[in-house]
C-alpha cells in the first residue's frame, strides 16, 4: 500500500481540486476499486463538498481536557489565574471562570488551587467520519470551530484510512493535506510515501512552497511539485521550476488557469469528470500519469 499526500504551504492553490481529480482518474485506471481517500484538512474539510459521498458513520472526537472551576468550592483567591500561561482564566463579576477555547489543558491550575476546586473534563472537539464516495471510501473529520488542531484528529483520520486500506488490500491512500507547515501538516506527512506539492506562480505561493518543501524533506518524504494557474504569471512558474531544478526537486508539470475548476466545484464534481476536455483536466490527466510512475517506481524520473 502507498500513501500519497497532497500539500501546498500556501492555502487555496488547488490541493482539494487536484485530489478530487486524482481520485476520479485513479478510479478509471489500474487503481479502480483499490484506492481510498483521506481528508487531512480537518478545520476546512472540503473534499466532501466536491465528492458528495454517502455518510456511513460519524463519531465524536475527544481532543483533550479543559479545566472547570467549581463555583461552590472556589475561594476566589486567584491563584489559578496567576499560574495560567494561556490567559484562559479571568475574574468576571467576582468569580473566576475558564475560557474553554483558550484553555490548553495543562492542568497547572488544578494543582495550584488550594481549595481543590478545579478539575479537568474531557471535551468533544470534533467528529470523525467515514463515507462512501463514487471513487472509494472517504475518511474525513470536522474540527469544531476554534478548537486546537494538534494533529491528533488528522492522525486518527489517517490511521482509520490506513487500517481500512490494509483490511481491504487497497493499494493507494490519497491524502488531501492542510495548508501551512505546522502540526496538522506534519501529521499528514507522517508515513507518506510521496508528497505532491501544489503551488501557484505567485510571490506568496513560491515563498510558502519553499517552507513546505523544507518541512517535507525534514521528515524524509520524497516530494514532487506541480504548478497550478501556471499561465497567470509565467515568470513565477519559470522561477519555481528553476528553484526546483537547483534543489533536486522534480517539477512534474503545470495546470493552466481554468474557470472549469470553480464550475466543477459548484457542480460537486471532480473537474476531470465534469469537463474531461477542459485545459485543466487534460493537464491533470497527464500529471496523474507522472505521479503514478513515481509512486510505482520511486526512483524513476517521469518523462516531462
Amino acid at each position: 500500500m502507498k500513501q500519497l499526500v497532497i500539500l501546498s504551504g500556501k492555502g487555496g492553490t488547488g490541493k482539494t481540486s487536484v485530489t478530487a481529480a486524482f481520485a476520479h482518474l485513479a478510479s478509471q485506471g489500474p487503481f479502480a476499486d483499490r484506492i481510498l481517500l483521506a481528508d487531512a484538512d480537518v478545520d476546512a474539510a472540503n473534499l466532501e463538498l466536491v465528492l458528495q459521498p454517502r455518510r456511513l458513520d460519524t463519531r465524536p472526537f475527544s481532543g483533550g481536557q479543559v479545566a472547570v472551576i467549581d463555583a461552590d468550592i472556589c475561594m476566589t483567591c486567584g491563584d489559578c489565574e496567576s499560574v495560567c500561561r494561556f490567559d484562559a482564566i479571568a475574574e468576571m463579576d467576582g468569580r473566576f471562570v475558564v475560557d474553554p477555547i483558550a484553555c490548553d489543558g495543562c492542568a497547572a491550575c488544578v494543582y495550584q488551587c488550594p481549595a481543590e476546586g478545579i478539575h479537568m473534563e474531557e471535551q468533544t472537539v470534533g467528529e470523525v467520519a467515514v463515507s462512501e464516495s463514487r471513487y472509494g471510501p472517504l475518511h474525513h473529520a470536522h474540527l469544531y470551530p476554534g478548537q486546537e488542531n494538534s494533529g491528533k484528529l488528522v492522525t486518527q483520520v489517517k490511521e482509520r484510512a490506513r487500517q481500512q486500506a490494509l483490511d481491504e488490500s487497497r493499494q493507494l491512500v490519497l491524502v488531501d493535506g492542510p495548508p501551512g507547515i505546522g502540526c496538522p501538516v506534519i501529521a499528514a506527512v507522517s508515513g507518506a510515501d510521496l508528497a505532491l506539492l501544489v503551488t501557484e506562480p505567485t510571490v506568496s505561493g513560491i515563498h510558502d512552497l519553499r517552507r513546505a518543501l523544507q518541512t517535507v524533506q525534514h521528515f524524509g518524504v520524497p516530494a514532487l511539485v506541480c504548478i497550478n494557474k501556471a499561465d497567470v504569471y509565467p515568470k513565477g512558474a519559470q522561477d519555481i521550476e528553476a528553484d526546483c531544478l537547483a534543489n533536486g526537486i522534480n517539477a512534474i508539470g503545470q495546470i493552466p488557469f481554468d474557470l472549469s475548476i470553480a464550475s466543477a466545484m459548484v457542480a460537486g464534481e471532480a473537474v476531470t469528470a465534469y469537463r474531461p476536455d477542459a485545459p485543466a483536466s487534460l493537464a491533470l490527466t497527464a500529471l496523474w500519469e507522472r505521479v503514478v510512475t513515481c509512486l510505482i517506481a520511486p526512483d524513476a524520473t517521469p518523462d516531462t
Binding site: 492555502g11 470553480a262 460537486g268
Partner: peptide
C-alpha cells in the same frame, strides 16, 4: 487560514473581523 486555535488567538482582543471569501462552495 483555517478555523482552529491560531485563528482564535489572532481574533482575541480585536474589535472587528473582516472576512475575505470567494463565492464557491469551499
Amino acid at each position: 487560514p483555517g478555523a482552529s486555535c491560531p485563528v482564535v488567538e489572532t481574533m482575541r482582543g480585536a474589535d472587528f473581523v473582516l472576512l475575505v471569501t470567494e463565492p464557491t462552495p469551499f
